[in-house]
Design a protein around this nucleic acid. Structure first.
Lengths: 239, 239
DNA sequence: TGTTTTGCCTGACAAATGTCAGCAAATTGT
DNA sequence: ACAATTTGCTGACATTTGTCAGGCAAAACA
């Protein structure tokens, strides 16, 4: 109940994993029953997410979260170790393990579709499954530690380099051409387009936006391929 | 010194201007000398901006701002009326009157350049002149009032519809085709690309990114033009 | 039924925060 | 040099905040 126990007090331990694939969650020993603890943590995180998106992290109080989740102000510390811990747990589930697909996987699994179709599908999935994660991440950067930011960037860069490889294949650009990286960045960025802009713009049809953006991405990639050194004439992008 | 005087206590007055073109700044009568007041306000805003971007709005305290700007904790209220007022003043100068050019103007003033050159120039200017404004805006949304958000959106939408008109001209798409609007949105969004992503990615050459993004935008627009109903064969985009 | 365990909650504390009253210091005008 | 005005500042206020100690009731167990 009272005694919390912090993870990896061994200082050398954390850095033995060179790339952490998640953010460190404090282990809290307030409540014995693990399934109950999990259930409460879910309540807490659900409430916190809504509030963080609505009012921002810093001006959401523990009292707000308790009121909304129905958990008592004292009890909450039996399930989470502090306010930042809630944020980390949220990012773990929304940023690191959101159900959003990856474009390279999609291309490999559905070669029967055109590039444009696959990209459009990818965008729609991403926008619906990662909306909140993206919003939360972009808005709470200042409240994250340097290490957490680094872990998040690492995750993104992993996506991006896989994407860059795909683009390399599509365009036949050489491996060291930085433009594949840039375009990969751009694609990921456009995948964020919906969530990030929705505070500004909510009156456009989502599917049509996705289709237009997909067309734009395809045009981008085709344009890159057109100036590839290996194939200067209309390369075969359609797979 | 002590007496503050708040603007437009007449409730009906503010809404007589249908589109406010800035955010409401409280008039503070603490200090008589207007140039001194302006100088102090600048100190305060400069310090506040750095801190807001570093630590976020809510967790930056008035004491932080005072320490950094050299203004006394009590005196600060002789120059600004409250913490939110600082944010509004910052957004007024960084969002509403940043020196960033508009792409339609650029196209009109420099018809001797290619579309790609103009777009690339636009992006570089935007990224350098509007970087902080964009970051600040996107991160502080939750702390703005509904009216303020509306005013900011209005500003953006004004840009976007002018841009959509330009794209209409370039692509010869009909006026009611929503894709021009979507592409205009995308262009503005990509103009935000640099600032927003720099917490994730700082190791790419800025100019090369701008050139590649410009190429992507041009490809997007050409692609749109290619399927325009009026000109189905390679339309003349180069001006 | 009596005891022990487990989860919940009332109440509170120390620290931090936005805000300012009222006075001291400096500047200005004469 | 003096008075009047303008600016700067010490110190403090009421609140809000994150966090928890310690007790209480219900459930599990004997």
């Amino acid at each position: 109940m009272k005694q919390k126990q912090f993870p990896s007090t061994h200082p050398g331990r954390a850095s033995s994993h060179p790339e952490r694939t998640q953010l460190q969650e404090a282990t809290v020993a307030g409540v014995r029953n693990p399934s109950l603890a999990e259930k409460r943590r879910e309540q807490i995180c659900d409430a916190a997410l809504e509030l963080f998106l609505q009012k921002g992290f810093a001006s959401t109080t523990i009292r707000d979260i308790c009121a909304r989740s129905g958990v008592n102000q004292a009890s909450i510390y039996d399930y989470i170790s502090n306010k930042n811990d809630i944020l980390r747990r949220l990012l773990n589930q929304l940023w690191f393990s959101s159900g959003a697909p990856s474009l390279p996987d999609l291309l490999a699994e559905h070669p029967e579709n055109t590039l444009q179709e696959n990209v459009a599908f990818y965008l729609k999935e991403f926008w619906s499954k990662r909306r909140k994660g993206t919003l939360l991440a972009y808005r709470t950067v200042p409240h994250l530690t340097k290490e957490d930011r680094k872990a998040m960037r690492a995750r993104d860069e992993q996506f991006i380099s896989r994407l860059a490889e795909s683009i390399e294949d599509l365009t036949h650009l050489p491996e060291n051409d930085p433009r594949t990286l840039i375009v990969a960045n751009l694609v990921l960025f456009m995948a964020n387009f919906g969530p990030l802009r929705d505070w500004l713009h909510q009156d456009l049809d989502n599917d049509m936006v996705a289709d237009t953006v997909a067309a734009a991405i395809v045009a981008m990639i085709e344009n890159l391929a057109r100036y590839s050194p290996e194939q200067s004439e209309s390369p075969s992008i359609q797979d």
